[in-house]
Amino acid sequence: MIHSPYIRKPASVQRVMFNVLLALVPGIAAYVWQIGAGILVNIAIATLTAVAAEVIMLSLRKRPVMLAATDLSAVVTAWLVALAFPPIVPWWLTVLAVLVAIVAVKHLYGGLGQNPFNPAMAAYCTMIVAYPALMSQWPAAGTVDFATQLHLILGGARELDAVTGATALDALRTGLRANGSVATLLQSNTYGAVGGRGWEWIAAGYLLGGLFLLASRTITWHLPTGFLVGLGVTSGIFWLIHPEQFASPLFHLASGGAMLAAFFIVTDPVSGATTPRGKLIFAAGVGLIAYLIRAFGAYPEGIAFGVLLMNICVPLIDMKTQPAVFGHRGGRQP
């Protein structure tokens, strides 16, 4: 027997996931415009792998396949994997990463809603540890044409120096290690107005999509704000102390995966904190760890590690930040 309520808002997991995919479109468009269409090939490879892996895992787990395979959650994971990876990684790396995300991180933990770790970020961390060289080859804007990108994706031979510029974060890091100063380094060809040349447009695209997610109430303001404040304030402190050694907060916010992370990565509801205060703490923690790794760690980008580390803390954060319920608050009486 069906119980009340007898009416439902027209909402579904598909709708939520579709909104996320839709919000990624401006960023992807900027990507194609600035870097090249190779990313579309990667997205296609990742999507096909993800859906296939989802179907296989669901049937192995004897779960209703159609309903879960069409909920678009695997597609979101696939797109995030593709967007977080360099656009010229060979196809098998993408396939492997997506398999890690879907099979190991998602389904081995119980499928949608059960995974304690962000699948895309877990896949990123696995791959950067396993294939550090391939994961560090980021083409600068306009340096690699589509034919070359396709050639590389399909596993063609790599003449590393010819194809890779370094990312803004990478170049800065290497430059600083070689005793350069931030001001002089940022004048090089790698950089645009605020971040990596070309990449700052992509970041703007993600920001636009993120605003759509906020407007459509798919995400709340807490997570992006927490992350951006966490990253911005930490980098700001170091920048104020020693501007020659540390790049400005604006640079950090516009570089690497900061915007993608702020609106699409830390906002993963399944593996993130859920209470309003918890969301702020969780996202700020990711921002803080990301900055520390960027500035002092062994990797140019630290968001993925930040996310995984904070994923571990989620049960504690949620438990300790339970909001007061109606009438138990005290002090809200007039």
């Binding site: 069906i2 007898y6 009416i7 439902r8 909402a11 579904s12 997991v13 939520v16 209703p64 309903l67 879960a68 909920d71 959650s73 499928g111 949608l112 809603g113 059960q114 709340t220 509801p269 399944v270 993130g272 859920t274 209470t275 949620d318 339970q322 909001p323 007061a324 319920v325 109606f326």
Partner: peptide, 29 residues
Amino acid sequence: LFPPPLPEQPCIRCGECARACPAELQPFE
């Protein structure tokens, strides 16, 4: 007028219920 409910899917902890709850509970928990 009152369509039968769609098939149940896993909770993705989106928190939509917590935002709708007038008792300010965390319904998904």
